[in-house]
């Protein structure tokens, strides 16, 4: 008895007029997968480091996120405390166990109540560390993993993301190259998340409103200077 798989693949091959045994076709597929050509990469993000960072900041704000540009990681806990105060939020947040977040000088803000782990939907504020940013569209790139729970990106009302200015690239392709280098034997992390602004919907009368199902606010903590 032939399976659905056999039926579908046979039908695809019949329509294409191929057998699957043709060496040139296999070669074309192998070449594409190995070479993974970038295609057309817009000039928009291909800038010197300082201009690239300026474009990233502009694009983050254009996507309705907010941004603090901080001289160093030492200022991150203070900036978070100020963000929470300014919005009358309780001085508590949930973060992943990521060593880059663990290394922040939390002792500078003793009133901040910092919890570690995935979200169960009861926390107002989640904190993540991004792998990098993309200047072309103001996009953050995050990887899931034991230290970076995905739920932090989506359940809290406020998503705060730390990104190192040296990790802001002009285009997405630069980040793919870095991700391939991090996981040379595959597979990719369970999730690679591109996040461009806070959650929104225009499903009622095409009126764009923020805070549909994901975070109502996205706040970027950009650290250091472009490198």
């Amino acid at each position: 008895m032939s399976t659905s798989r056999d039926i579908v693949l046979a039908s695809v091959r019949r329509s294409l007029g191929v057998t699957s045994g043709e060496a040139p076709r296999r070669q074309a597929v192998d070449d594409r997968l190995k070479g993974h050509p970038a295609g057309v990469v817009p000039a928009r993000g291909q800038l010197a480091p300082a201009e690239r960072l300026a474009l990233f900041k502009d694009k983050v704000v254009a996507a309705a996120a907010t941004l603090d540009h901080l001289p160093s990681t030492a200022e991150v806990p203070g900036a978070i405390a100020a963000y929470l105060r300014a919005r009358n939020l309780p001085a508590t947040l949930l973060r992943g166990a990521d060593p880059r977040l663990a290394a922040l000088p939390w002792q500078n803000e003793p009133q901040l109540d910092v919890w570690i782990g995935p979200s169960d939907g009861r926390q107002l504020v989640g904190l993540s560390h991004a792998l990098g940013g993309v200047a072309e569209s103001g996009t953050l790139v995050l990887l899931s993993g034991p230290d970076n729970p995905t739920t932090l990106n989506f359940l809290p009302d406020h998503h705060l993301v730390v990104v190192d200015a040296r990790d802001v690239a002009g285009d997405y392709e630069t980040l793919w190259t870095r991700i391939r280098a991090l996981f040379p034997e595959g597979p990719l992390p369970r999730e690679v998340n591109w996040i461009t602004g806070p959650s929104r919907s225009a499903d009622i009368e095409q009126t764009l409103l923020l805070g549909a199902h994901g975070p109502r606010s996205l706040h970027v903590l950009l650290v250091g200077e472009a490198g």
Binding site: G145, P146, P187, P189
Partner: peptide
């Protein structure tokens, strides 16, 4: 806003 690349189920050490 959200472009999500999903590969396989949660990994043994993942928290969610």
């Amino acid at each position: 806003v959200y472009t999500t690349f999903s590969t396989g189920p949660r990994r043994p050490q993942d928290g969610d």
